[in-house]
């Protein structure tokens, strides 16, 4: 009898102490469906990142982003054409033309020839000695 009373009193005190530690479970709010604006912003940011990795002609890219109209292929292709055309007029005088092509390969050929001759002679000589 006493034992039962003691156990009931203990349960009453423990229940208060345990109740102070255990709170009610509150379920987290369900994620709201993303708004169309947020979806568009995220998609735009993703596409910008991809473009940054692939754009090579930065001038044309910046101009196009700023709304400036630029012709297509304004880049390496046009530069190469300009260089070729300026080289083409180097044999006749025109205003703004490049200097004539005075580069000569003869000194290089002479050095290469001497080296080949010397190495070849060295190989033949050492072979005949051995």
């Amino acid at each position: 009898m006493v034992r039962t009373l003691f156990l009931s009193a203990a349960l009453m005190f423990v229940a208060n102490a345990v109740g102070a530690q255990i709170t009610t479970y509150i379920a987290p709010p369900k994620p709201l469906a993303p708004s169309p604006l947020a979806v568009a912003t995220a998609d735009s940011a993703r596409r910008d990142s991809v473009a940054q990795a692939t754009v090579t002609n930065m001038k044309a890219w910046v101009d196009s982003a700023a709304g400036v109209s630029v012709p297509e292929h304004v880049g390496a292709v046009d530069t190469a054409l300009t260089k070729d055309s300026s080289r083409a007029v180097a044999t006749t005088f025109s205003n703004g033309s490049v200097a004539p092509a005075t580069a000569s390969n003869l000194p290089t050929l002479a050095v290469v020839g001497v080296l080949m001759l010397a190495i070849g002679a060295g190989l033949v000589t050492t072979r005949s000695r051995s």
């Binding site: 001497v114 080949m116 010397a118 070849g120 033949v124």
Partner: peptide, 10 residues
Amino acid sequence: VGYALFWIGG
């Protein structure tokens, strides 16, 4: 190889 280099260099 030695002869080839010699003649090409020459």
